[in-house]
C-alpha cells in the first residue's frame, strides 16, 4: 500500500494545507507535527510563489509571508527530511505553481520529492492538456501528479478521471481559494461521475470549506476534505503561536468527519 492509499484507508480523509514559511519554517514544522498527531490523513504543503493565480487573498498573503521568510523549495525538502528523521510519517503532498518546479528542473524537483518522502504533487496551473511533462517524470519518482476537476469541467471529468493518479482534487465551486458559504450544487454529481469511470480512485473536495459543519457535508459526498484558507487564517492571526490553535481546529474536523 502506498502513502496515498494509506491516507484514504480509514474512513474519510482529512487533508489540511499550510504554506511553508508562514510565518517561518520553525512554526511550519511544529504545525505539521501537531496536525499529524491529531490524525490528519495527508498534509498539503505549499511552496510560496510570487504570483499565486488560483489563490484568494488569504493564501496569497500566506505566500507573501513565506517569501519574506525566504523559504524556497530546497528549504521545504530539508525540513521534511528532518521531520521524517524524527519519525513523522504522515503522507505528504506539495502544492505549488508550475514555474517553481520548472525553474528547479522538473526531474531534480521530483527526485528531491521522492527522496524526502512526498507522495503527491498538486499544480493548480497545470491542467490535463499540459500535464505530460510533469506527470511522466513524477511517475518515475513514485509521486502522483494530482488531477483537479471543477464545477465547469463537465464532460472533461471522464477524460481527466481516466488518467488520474493518487486521488482527485474536486474544486467545490467557482473562483479562487477562500472560505465561502455556498458550494456548487453539482459537486455530488461530479464525484459520482468520477466513480462511474474510476471506482478505484478516491475523490477529495477542496476550496471554501470553513468549519466542521461544511467539512461533514462535503465528506458525506466524497472520500475526503481539503482545508486551506481556514487554517491559514488561524496562522495569520496567531503567527508563531499558532500551533495549539491549529491543533484544536484539526481535532475538531477529524472528529466531525469520522465514522461515515
Amino acid at each position: 500500500m502506498n502513502d496515498i492509499e494509506r491516507a484514504f484507508e480509514n474512513g474519510k480523509a482529512f487533508i489540511p494545507f499550510i504554506t511553508v514559511g508562514d510565518p517561518d519554517i520553525e512554526t511550519s514544522r511544529e504545525i505539521i507535527k501537531v496536525m499529524a498527531e491529531e490524525g490528519a490523513s495527508l498534509i498539503e504543503l505549499g511552496i510560496p510563489f510570487s504570483d499565486p493565480m488560483a489563490e484568494g487573498s488569504v493564501i496569497q498573503e500566506a505566500n507573501y509571508r513565506g517569501l519574506r521568510a525566504g523559504v524556497t523549495a530546497s528549504d521545504v525538502f530539508s525540513m521534511v527530511r528532518s521531520l521524517r528523521g524524527e519519525g513523522v510519517n504522515v503522507p505528504l503532498a506539495i502544492m505549488t505553481y508550475a514555474n517553481v518546479v520548472f525553474s528547479y528542473g522538473i526531474d531534480s524537483f521530483l527526485s528531491e520529492m521522492e527522496d524526502a518522502g512526498f507522495s503527491a504533487l498538486i499544480l493548480p496551473d497545470v491542467p490535463y492538456e499540459e500535464k505530460g511533462e510533469f506527470a511522466s517524470v513524477a511517475a518515475l519518482h513514485n509521486v502522483s501528479l494530482i488531477s483537479l476537476i471543477a464545477p465547469t469541467s463537465d464532460s472533461r471529468i471522464r477524460m481527466i478521471a481516466s488518467e488520474a493518479t493518487g486521488f482527485i482534487y474536486a474544486v467545490s465551486s467557482l473562483g479562487v481559494t477562500g472560505v465561502r458559504s455556498s458550494f456548487s450544487s453539482n459537486i455530488g454529481e461530479m464525484v459520482k461521475t468520477v466513480r462511474s469511470v474510476r471506482p478505484d480512485i478516491p475523490v477529495a473536495i477542496g476550496f471554501g470549506i470553513a468549519d466542521a459543519a461544511s467539512a461533514r457535508k462535503m465528506a458525506e459526498l466524497s472520500d475526503g476534505v481539503i482545508i486551506g484558507s481556514a487554517i491559514v487564517k488561524i496562522i495569520a492571526k496567531y503567527g508563531k503561536e499558532a500551533a495549539p490553535y491549529v491543533r484544536r481546529f484539526v481535532k475538531e474536523i477529524v472528529e466531525a468527519i469520522r465514522g461515515f
Binding site: M53, E130, A150, V171, G175
Partner: peptide, 17 residues
C-alpha cells in the same frame, strides 16, 4: 497551441472549458 516549445495553456481547470 504552441510556437515551438513556447505557449500552451497553463491555467486552472476551472477556466479550461
Amino acid at each position: 497551441t504552441r510556437f515551438g516549445e513556447y505557449g500552451g495553456m497553463y491555467i486552472p481547470e476551472t477556466l479550461m472549458n
